[in-house]
Amino acid sequence: MSWATVVAARLRGLVEHKRLERELDEEVRFHVEMQIEDNLNAGMNPAEARYAAMRSFGGLEPMKETYREQRTFALVEAMAQDLRYGVRTLRKSPGFTITAVAVLALAIGANTAMFSVLNGVLFRPLPYQSAEQLAMLWAEDPTQNLREGRSALWDVEQWRSQSQSFADMATFDAVSTVLTGADGVEQIVGASISPNLLPLLGVRPVLGRSFSSEEAGQRQRLVLISHRFWQARFGGSRDALGATLVLNGLACQIIGILPADFPERPA
């Protein structure tokens, strides 16, 4: 109960700052004047009486400081004072203020930009189903300083049949591909993928279909194209399905269109 009344009194102190300060001054003045009068009555001369009164009272400012600290929450009041002082100082030197604000603005801007990038690259979940369960498997050989190396398909098949930690394993191998078209030859980015990759990621073609394992086994040359490629080359027409692309000099048949939100670089 005691601390509650003290807190209440100090909250009041916060609001009634001016009045309490004036009252303290009045009280102190009364005290000192009374002391001076008594000293005069005791036979001192006025200067002596005043000096003795001040001395017996002790340091006035330290006392007021203690009094103020006790009157309210010293921290809050000190913070308010610091704030007022800060605003006054800044107003007095606009050049400095502008520089400081500009520096702050730049720093905040840079941080925001950095965060936006990180958010996109690191923090935002991948646009696949069960993204939190996805893992990328790499071959590593520390003795040869090999990291994030490619793996032979045969190895992957072994891992896939023997592993018990993963629901499924699929492969993709991003390769630069030469496309021969009516306008000439150009280089595009492609990837050869295993037939289970799209089902594993929960990705369904917006048009057409994906590969089957049988087709993969028969090594048929089938491709899915990105949504953007579809729009650019075929104007979004259904005729794209079944059309032929010449990739690395070999005719490949388009069997499906990937969704627009499928990243063009899957990793």
Partner: peptide, 17 residues
């Protein structure tokens, strides 16, 4: 007695009720 120290003490006692 440093007379001045009386006033913070009085304040505190008043706050305590």
């Amino acid at each position: 007695l440093n007379q001045g120290t009386l006033y913070p003490a009085l304040l505190r006692m008043e706050q305590e009720g």
